[in-house]
Amino acid sequence: MTRAVSTAARWRRFGLSAVSMAVLGVVFLVPFAFVVLAAVKTRQEASLLQLTWPTEWRIAQNFLEVLSARDYLLIIAFTNSVILTVSAVAISVILAALAAFVLQRRPSRWNPLINMLVLSGLIIPPAVVPTIWVLDGIGLFRTMLGLILVEVAFGVSFCILLFRAFLITVPRELDEAAVLDGAGPLRLFFRVILPLLRPVIITVVVVQSVTIYNDFVNPLYFLPGEQNATVQLTLFNFNSQYSNQYNLLFMDILLIMIPPLVMFLFFSRQIVAGMTSGAVKG
């Protein structure tokens, strides 16, 4: 692609790079810098809401104060968020992989209907009060299990589509060989197919974890109550209860941003792959 590049072209390249760095840096890094700086300031200094270097560093104090606020609610909230995210993602992966396997491998006249149902899961906004009514009817409203199953129901379409697209690349000869060796459908699926889905499982797990961890609406509706709060809910409530303690608010935001950041550092490729899989034709 590159051959003898003229001096003018090279200068243009550096000019463009410098301008993009500067503009994108201001737009996309300043908000994060603001969060980090405000999180380590004193209460008075943070309440000025300025983008300044802290005159006094209060990392440890602010950190401990946020953790201990309201009887260590943040720790309870982190525990709840982890339980919710891990269970919902694990259940989604198994249920979606099973369904996608049959959907991709066994064409039938029901497939158009099933495909339509799967797609509607991506488009239709969930009906809130009727969902509460159903949850209440089966005794799962205001329970963690109820919220977990709601997250599974709302996310399973996306997972099925990713699994189905990947299964196209898994040769059917493997199924036939396994069946000839006397494997039943369960063994075929869990011993042969599931291990081969590893790359797409990682993608699904990472993308769904970030989505469910960041979810605010569903916990708000389906799991109300202080002791059940997830991190996003405590963050929202924190704002109204400690409205002038901006240092603690931003320390809270900072702590809540860390898990997605870690995910991104390790799995940026899978995340991007999962989120862009509709973009390329063929």
Binding site: L117, G121, P126, P130, T131, V134, I138, A153, F154
Partner: peptide
């Protein structure tokens, strides 16, 4: 899960 918690409420 999908029918009970998504399709039925819809």
């Amino acid at each position: 899960v999908y029918l009970v918690l998504f399709i039925v409420p819809t």
